[in-house]
């Protein structure tokens, strides 16, 4: 004889099997929950309901949610960094370089958008779903298009590797807020605000882990090289930034030691056999930024 709980599980199992081949996860969960309830096992129904929500909270964040998160973080980046620099031609140029690099990156099927922040500091940020920012100060330190392509490649790398989403996912798990799931954004704006505030703090104040920055350096130089830009341009750029150390504390606080970064880039170029093409396009960069910075 089966006890009440076992009978409930048996019925739920049958329903799951019958539904699995035909419907999505949410429907399966709903069907199992309904079966448990109609068999009189309210406790089991609640467990299935909670389990589904928990699993949903633990599984990776989907692209729709990523877009919502990316846009909310982008709002904070723009607000904290003095707004967007109103130079349509230069913005279009940065977008053309960035989108050329994104065209053959490892996550080429999503939209990437680039904007210039009206700020003198030297920095760049990537929010989920392809919202990418460079400061006016950073553009001033760049000497050619190949350097810009590598910098944007680094930021695209944060998006392809889902670095911020990983931070959010971990913080959700540590805080045990799987129940609050990001999809509750409209119903539960406080939970959504906490998630975004935490991500913004990590992105703008604390900086990502060294490992994530180095990973972005590695994939960024590969992405730029795929389009044909000379990968050694990134080495030159990082070396130039190293000499500026101390002038911009915010940037150096949120990015790893430059000798680590340089050795990562050098070993990537060598291991991946990236071609030294000599394509720097310094003239096009100067022409496009002339008088605008």
């Amino acid at each position: 004889m089966l006890n009440r709980s076992s009978r409930g599980l048996f019925v739920v199992g049958l329903v799951l099997l019958a539904t699995a081949g035909l419907t999505g996860c949410a429907e399966i969960q709903k069907a199992a929950e309904g079966a448990a309830r109609s068999s009189g096992n309210e406790r089991l129904a609640k467990t299935i309901h909670g389990g589904g929500t928990l699993i949903g909270g633990l599984l990776p964040i989907g692209y729709e949610e990523e877009q919502t998160i990316g846009q909310a973080i982008a709002l904070q980046v723009v607000a904290r960094y003095g707004g967007v620099y109103d130079q349509p031609d230069l913005t279009r140029y940065v977008n053309l370089v960035g989108r050329s690099v994104a065209l053959t990156c490892d996550r080429a099927d999503i939209e990437y958008r680039f904007a210039i922040l009206n700020h003198d500091s030297i920095n760049a940020f990537a929010a989920p779903a392809g919202y990418i920012f460079v400061t006016r100060g950073l553009l001033k330190t760049i000497k050619n298009e190949a350097e810009l392509a590598a910098v944007l490649g680094h930021e695209i790398g944060h998006v392809t590797q889902k670095h911020i989403l990983d931070v959010i996912q971990r913080s959700k798990q540590i805080a045990g807020v799987a129940e609050a799931g990001l999809a509750y954004a409209n119903k539960n704006p406080d939970a959504f605000k906490n998630v975004i505030d935490g991500a913004v703090k990590k992105l703008l104040d604390e900086g990502l882990d060294q490992g994530k920055e180095l990973e972005s350096d590695r994939v960024g130089v590969i992405f730029a090289s795929r389009v044909g830009y000379d990968p050694t341009a990134y080495e030159t750029f990082l070396d130039r930034l190293r000499t500026l150390k101390g002038d911009d504390r915010a940037f150096f606080k949120t990015h790893p030691d430059f000798s680590n970064r340089l050795s990562t880039v050098r070993s990537t170029i060598s291991e991946q056999k990236l071609k030294t093409t000599g394509i720097l396009l310094a003239d096009r960069f100067t022409r496009s930024s002339n008088g605008a910075l």
Partner: peptide, 27 residues
Amino acid sequence: PAGGDNELAALGKGFRRTEASGVTASA
């Protein structure tokens, strides 16, 4: 190419959808 959603992310979306109707509009 992994695409906008990988299989696990799509699965997560499926589980969350039960209580997320109309939450995320089209960014």
